[in-house]
């Protein structure tokens, strides 16, 4: 069977959908997409996009797989959690097994002001799979500045939202929400929980918007908001870009400006803190592992080392990032990092 008819067979049911057809499938097959964050939303979106036959999918995630991810992060397995595999690597492996005709690349790194251009330039669409506001505002700044469409998506508890953003043609995230929510004012995964069903609803809506944009060149003009437990399926008209928006009107782009220093961040859903030097550094994990092994239990895989420091666990990546488990105090985390990794 020739490659062409093989492709047709795989996507035949998608091609049969009148709005897509052969021409639409051709556009999908040439698309280049970044999925930012490969936790719950990112796993589900990535899988759908790969099955749909996008051309190139880049998945970026800074985290590694843990047991309590498996309730909703659909690309990962118990084996990934046992081996502490970085999510971007586990996702890459799983996605390539699903569709070898798609170019899939996983990046184990934090998306930052320094790195976003390298990661996202030259792509057709950015898909939100993040777990925090700061990264979304960074994506939004970059997308608006470069004119790259992106699809915001988020979920908490049983509630979820989705909005396609076409820079300067539709409201950007700051048109609707100009300012970062004050620190400490937001609900967390570990207080509100999260259902996998609403994850799938949000991701499905995001993917629908991606496919529609690829094929027809436009997003829905509405912002979805649903509560799967209360059975509320609603949307609002997103309206027009705001003439006073700090991003798409005033072009402040302060999230793209970036800063030097060490960023200390409490991680979504658990008693863990990430420490990230900016700019990133290149660590000799083997050397550090050997040094720490004299005092502590150290386990390693090709991507990271895990160090048991009394009641804390530190996972150290080659780019200098560390995830310290067993505490939530940001200063304490920074102190642990400084003590065992350095300044």
């Amino acid at each position: 069977m020739s490659d062409v008819s093989g492709k047709q067979n795989r996507y035949s049911r998608q091609v049969l959908f009148p709005a897509i057809g052969e021409a639409g499938q051709e556009k999908i097959s040439r698309s280049r997409i970044v999925v930012v964050g490969c936790g719950a939303l990112g796993s589900v979106s990535s899988e759908m996009l790969v099955r749909a036959g996008v051309g190139y999918l880049r998945v970026i995630d800074r985290d590694f797989v843990e047991l309590n991810n498996l309730q909703r992060q659909s690309l990962f397995t118990e084996s990934d959690a046992d081996q502490t595999i970085p999510k971007a690597i586990a996702a890459q492996k799983a996605l390539r097994r699903i569709n070898s005709g798609v170019s899939v690349e996983g990046l184990v790194q934090d998306l930052t002001a320094d790195s976003i251009a390298d990661v996202c330039d030259g792509f057709d669409l950015l898909v939100d799979g993040t777990d925090n506001f700061e990264t979304r505002y960074l994506i939004n700044d970059f997308a608006v500045q470069r004119g790259i469409p992106w699809v915001y998506g988020a979920a908490l508890g049983s509630y979820g939202v989705c909005l396609g953003i076409e820079p300067r043609k539709s409201p950007c995230i700051r048109c609707l929400f100009p300012d970062l929510p004050p620190r400490g004012s937001v609900e967390t995964c570990d207080t509100a929980g999260i259902l996998s069903s609403v994850i799938h609803v949000v991701s499905a809506t995001q993917v629908s918007q991606v496919l529609r944009f690829l094929v027809e060149g436009r997003f829905s003009s509405r912002m979805l908001h649903v509560d799967v437990w209360k059975d509320e399926w609603r949307s609002i008209a997103a309206g027009q870009p705001d003439a006073t928006c700090p991003c798409c009107a005033k072009e402040q782009f302060e999230f793209l400006a970036g800063e030097q220093g060490t960023f200390v961040t409490q991680l979504c859903g658990r008693d863990a803190v990430q420490v990230r030097p900016s700019p990133s550094v290149s660590l000799d994990l083997h050397e550090i592992g050997e040094r720490l092994r004299r005092s502590f239990e150290v386990r390693s895989n090709p991507y990271l080392i895990r160090v048991q420091i009394d009641e804390l666990e530190m996972v150290l990546f080659a780019d200098g990032r560390a995830v310290i488990k067993g505490l939530s105090d940001l200063s304490a985390a920074r102190a642990v990092y400084a003590k065992y990794v350095g300044n």
Partner: peptide, 12 residues
């Protein structure tokens, strides 16, 4: 305006 998880970000 949901963010998913919460990140309390402290920059030092």
């Amino acid at each position: 305006f949901v963010g998913g998880g919460s990140i309390s970000r402290c920059q030092t």
